[in-house]
Amino acid sequence: MANESATPLLEVENLAVEFDTPAGPLRAVRGVSFEVGECETLAIVGESGSGKSVTAQALMGLVPQAARIAGGRVSIEGRDVAGLSDREWQALRGERISMIFQDPLSALNPSLTVGYQIGEMFRRHRGAGRAEARRRAAELMALVGIPDAERRLDDHPHRFSGGMRQRVMIAMALALDPRLLIADEPTTALDVTVQAQILRLLRQRQRAERLGMILISHDLGVVARAADRVAVMYAGRIVETGTVAEVYERPAHPYTLGLMRAVPDPRDIGAPLEAIEGRPPDLAARPAGCAFHPRCPFARDVCLTDDPAPHEFHAARASACHFAEEVIAHGGN
């Protein structure tokens, strides 16, 4: 899916998010830039603590209490969202940009029926009446593949299975025809066969409504299946971007290469896994130079002192590694 429209749906430039801690500000996200176009899925991949979820929250204007956006620019459909009032944000959320989460049960109100909660989107944002809201809710539920939608309108969330609940979340997220959907680990809590259903549903809705989508995930397999482009995050920064085919075929950052080799290779069964030694750095003790250098087999002196900025070395591909070409040559499999 190439980026077709002139202005991308979402542009992020040099985004930085800081957490205020007793020990001073901690930068959880630094210098993150990407864009998402219509009908395109960008996956943001990273391990826990990489800053991927905080990035997603920043895009929705929902950073946690202790955090704040410390720099950079986010524009949605060409409109800079810096300094939007709460009211303006509320209008934006749901209408233009929308989000689904890993755990739909905690995102749904347990004491209200599912039909009411979906219908509320129409009542609140569209001024729809009771009957109208109910009708639209039933339509949406059918659209996201909930069998017997009419009858299940009056069920409470706990009566639904995990997969069905996630469908309800998707229905709510898509109710107001947003242009951009952020899916934060949407299938992590689900079983494999249900995960396949949800990924397929997301893809179908995306195509039908020409949505831009950001898929946040830790699962390289899910990303391979669902995304067009991928951005790999490590220690708060994007270390590599490119199309899924490019990045998976020829990783250009040692961290990406390491991740690929840490997962069993479907085409080389039983080959020993190459674990990345050590573990991701604590935000408070980010190594000098390249944050990955203590774990990096390619590291040289320059990596200890110079933090490499992501540089494009190829059309629509960037890597934040001093030795990107060398990594590519090494990784060719």
């Binding site: 066969t193 396949a196 259903q197 397929r200 391979a224 299946r225 899924v244 998976y248 479907p266």
Partner: peptide, 20 residues
């Protein structure tokens, strides 16, 4: 078929078996 793998970007999604 449903299990995600690193190679999934190569395969055509119409080959997936998706259970109902």
């Amino acid at each position: 078929s449903a299990a995600p793998s690193l190679d999934d970007w190569r395969t055509d999604e119409s080959d997936e078996i998706v259970l109902t």
